[in-house]
């Protein structure tokens, strides 16, 4: 863990700042262009969700190292209403806000790891990782 960046999200425009920080970090770690684009898009999705569903929150970006791989961990944290049904939120085409319904399932495909912890009325914490070279795809839920 070399670097850590926090971006607080309270307005729509803040997701652009989160995206910029993610791109900077990815470039710094030598991510490929496509992987960096995937990461940036996923971060934008998560940040937009924070703003849209939880009224704001925080995006935290951290550098990960594992044996010969480097990666970036994204944590989207909020104290909003929580996700009623995580299964459902991860399903294609499901949306409570009139969106396209492919945000979270999209993030799952763009990133290598995705973990969602949500408690009704307490908030949600989503942790997603992207490795510079994809080793294996791990999916967990708690």
């Amino acid at each position: 863990m070399l670097e850590s960046v926090r971006v607080s999200i309270s307005e729509e425009i803040h997701s652009a700042e989160a995206r910029r920080q993610a791109l900077l970090l990815a470039q710094h770690l030598g991510f490929g262009r496509t992987d960096a684009y995937y990461l940036a898009t996923a971060v934008t999705e998560l940040a937009t969700n924070l703003f849209r569903h939880a009224g704001g929150g925080e995006i935290q970006l951290r550098t990960l190292t594992r044996q010969n791989a480097v990666g970036i961990e994204v944590i989207a944290h909020d104290t909003g209403p929580g996700i009623a049904n995580v299964e459902q939120a991860l399903r294609e085409g499901f949306s409570t806000s009139g969106g396209l319904g492919c945000g979270l399932p999209g993030v799952r495909r763009l990133m290598d790891e995705l973990e969602i912890c949500s408690e009704m009325g307490r908030g949600t914490r989503i942790r997603a990782c992207k490795w510079a070279a994809i080793i294996q795809t791990v999916e967990r839920q708690c």
């Binding site: 496509t34 684009y37 995937y38 999705e45 495909r109 763009l110």
Partner: peptide, 14 residues
């Protein structure tokens, strides 16, 4: 739409 953008949109399922 850039090549990266096209791949991302497909991944997103748009």
């Amino acid at each position: 739409i850039s090549p990266d953008g096209a791949q991302t949109l497909v991944k997103l399922g748009v």
